[in-house]
Amino acid sequence: MKINVSGHHCDITEAVKESINQKLSKVGSHFPTLIALDIIVTKEHGEYSAEISTKYEGSSIAVKGKGDVMYPAISQASKKLDAALKHRKGQLKSDLHAKPSCTTPEIAHEIIQEMDLT
């Protein structure tokens, strides 16, 4: 999985890149079909925000985490990404299962009315 990290009004050091790789390694192992993640870390008005976007099974997924410190913002975004990917995977799995068909005929209430239960 390729992780593209960029910074807006803040420096992205090797320590930050290593922290991001460590946080997102679990996501890469749980979802092996992910090809790339784009991460933008922004600092505005003394608050950091980390935005992660990717494509997974035909849909675009984007999450955002905010915080006063950079590392908790990245952590929050990675947790949201994990939850969003699990939700999407659940949707895809539920589409594979056959929906149950109605086992009673549509005129079952009429048949019961005609029965002599005395």
Rank of each mutant, 00 (worst) to 15 (best):
E14K: 15
L24F: 11
S101H: 10
E57A: 13
F31D: 08
T118K: 05
A62M: 12
A108Q: 06
T103F: 08
L117A: 11
Y71L: 13
E57D: 08
G58Y: 03
M1N: 06
Y71T: 06
D116N: 11
Q113R: 13
G46K: 05
I107P: 03
V41W: 00
K55N: 15
Q76V: 08
L117V: 13
K17A: 12
A98G: 09
K79A: 03
S59A: 13
E114L: 12
Q113S: 11
L117Y: 12
D82W: 05
P32D: 12
H8Y: 11
S78V: 04
G58V: 00
K99R: 13
D116Y: 08
S25V: 00
I20K: 00
E106A: 11
N21K: 11
Q113G: 09
M115E: 04
P105E: 07
I61W: 06
M70L: 13
P32M: 02
E106N: 05
I111W: 09
T104P: 01
I3H: 06
E44M: 14
T13C: 04
A62D: 06
V5A: 10
T33G: 06
L92E: 11
I107W: 09
R88S: 14
K26F: 07
L81Y: 10
V41K: 02
K43P: 03
I74K: 04
A77H: 02
V16Y: 00
R88I: 05
E14Q: 14
A77C: 04
E110Q: 13
M70C: 04
I107A: 10
